[in-house]
Amino acid sequence: MTAAYKSVFDIIGPVMIGPSSSHTAGAAAIGHAARKIFRQVPRELTVRYYESFAETHRGHGTDYALVAGVLGLAPADPQVPNALALAQQQGLTVHFIEMAGTSPIEHPNTAILTLRAAQRTVTVAGCSIGGGTIEIRRITSDGFELTPTGPLPILLVWGAADNDQIIQEKLAKMTKIIRRQSYNTATKHLVEFDLERSLKQHEVASLQQHGADLVYL
């Protein structure tokens, strides 16, 4: 089984704006992951909340935390509580929907984000498992439907099959690849790597040197 908590700083940390690590810091992390997959500020964001998130998102500041993540703010940024106003200034329309019933990704702290801009729509289903740590369990993007194991870090590589072979070799020298999953549409190819440990910024940069189109979560 994959350990969801990989670092001592998942337990002692993060340093964050209160009041809830799972409903605020974790929500911000889900928003940030969605933003990375979308690669830009969307024009429209729809958030569907389930179970504990549906019941308590207003009290916990989950709304502004998710939006802060989508806008790319750090968890301890003093602007986090003002994220809804910032979104409006940046032309981002936000909708929140409280869903009845159980989470489709089987966790009580679930938020499913749909990001839209022009022709593109991306859906990211994340859950906040406690202490600010999150899992991403479903991603729909560019015709792909991904079902990662959940725990981060996850590396997504778009492009040709030979390209991700080079990346896989380099990656294997950096950390253990827990799972490799490839997805194909008629015209495109995508590989998902679930990793044992976080990559350093320079390591991600060195993977990007191969001209790969990659997203590191």
Partner: peptide
């Protein structure tokens, strides 16, 4: 109290339990 007031805390392991440690 700082956490409830949306101030900065260190989650240990969570924000709700950040006062214990």
């Amino acid at each position: 109290e700082v956490n409830a007031a949306m101030g900065v805390v260190c989650a240990t392991p969570t924000a709700g339990s950040s006062g214990t440690l």
